[in-house]
Write a protein that binds this DNA or RNA. Structure first.
Lengths: 222, 222
DNA sequence: CGATGACTGGATTCGCGTTTCCGGTCATAC
DNA sequence: GTATGACCGGAAACGCGAATCCAGTCATCG
């Protein structure tokens, strides 16, 4: 059912999709949808939450498999690649009002508390990375986070913006993100220090993922 | 008259401003406006063009005064500061449809040919900077331009995006842009090489500015 | 019990006649 | 020659009743 909702959401946008559409598309009755979700909003919020959770979980998995993934450059590039493939989170990250409809507002609110937790995690990760000598210390930590956010935002938006000619393919663009972020805030050879931070980072993000998982499962009636 | 039009444009947006508003605000008759501009579009396009010209001209002036301003990092930071002060070009660079209205489409078209010239100039500047050893050569030139565009876009948008807390003031943000761009595509100590490129860069941008100046003056009847 | 779809009412959209608005013109005044 | 504002007509905004839509409910069924 969530898959059906997700599919229709990205194809038509929140406004145009009716609960009956979702039910039909999932091969169930409309009433059944309301057996599982209190409201239409709850349904689609859950869709968003699930996908968001997926992104964070993959992040943690990648860190576990390769410690260098804790570096902001690598992390961001990987998320960028994920976004390219996941049509649900892309509008979420881009705040696309066309797709999100009124959810854009609603989502920000509900995801806000989780966003807070994520910000805390991110802040702590930055602290760890600085202590480990993987991040530079020539900028205060808030400025580094601002730079990261700005650069990541830029690469995300510049594609969806009026640019007739995008010079390179998806993977190369991801590499360019990594290059830019690494150059701006990371220490050369930071990868070597990543190993020391990875375990804690993995734990943090797994916990975050678990929170998100719990959150969206909590929204399903049974 | 152009000042009046610019003022109203940024305050109310293209749609809400009528030609009569502009005339009244400029203390002249409505017919007089049409004595100088063939159409409403031409009037506002001229406003945009003039401001855009202003930005480029200031760029050239800064380069003449300080050769280090030819460096993409410095250049972008300065333009960022200019945008913060100039309420007319800001929506233009941001493509704000609220303010630009249908001009967003129209402007892109007419400014397109000038945009082409600017792209050529930019490309040539990048070539010169690489030859002078001010830019790195670890990335192909198109990718460096893409990175520059992406990073600049990011810093522009991240402010106007839903970010409750912007950690630093305007000038500091400009410095962070410079920092990020320098780190991503410039050679350390690039400033020393800038002097060799500056004269040609100044010439190029002055010519570009002259083109733009001619273009918007051409649109005024007399 | 879990599942369903007919049903309801509040909201949204549609159709369309009427009014208002405003870009552009031009006869007039200076 | 230059400046103006009354004026024109097409387009957009408005009003409003009718028609439609759809989130959410609930009686019914298996």
């Amino acid at each position: 059912m969530l898959d059906a909702a997700a599919d229709l959401l990205v194809r038509w946008g929140y406004q145009r999709v009716t609960v009956e559409d979702v039910a039909r598309h999932a091969g169930i009755g409309k009433g059944t949808v309301y057996l599982h979700f209190r409201t239409k909003d709850a349904l689609f919020l859950t869709v968003l939450l699930r996908s968001h959770h997926h992104v964070v979980a993959r992040m943690a998995d990648r860190m576990a498999a390769d410690p260098a993934e804790v570096l902001p450059s690598r992390m961001t590039a990987s998320v960028y690649r994920d976004l390219a493939d996941d049509a649900v989170v892309r509008p979420l990250y881009l705040g696309d009002p066309e797709v999100l409809g009124r959810l854009a507002h609603e989502a920000a609110e509900t995801l806000g508390e989780l966003g807070g937790k994520r910000d805390v995690a991110s802040r702590r990760l930055f602290g760890l990375l600085r202590d480990a000598g993987a991040l530079r210390t020539d900028l205060p930590i808030e400025e580094q986070e601002y730079v990261l956010r700005a650069v990541a935002t830029g690469f995300l938006f510049v594609d969806s913006l009026s640019t007739p000619e995008v010079p390179v393919d998806r993977d190369r663009r991801a590499e360019l993100i990594a290059h830019s972020i690494a150059a701006a805030i990371e220490e050369p050879g930071a990868a070597a220090q990543a190993g020391a931070v990875a375990p804690q980072a993995v734990a943090m993000f797994r916990e975050l993922a678990a929170d998100m998982d719990a959150e969206w499962r909590r929204r399903v009636r049974r």
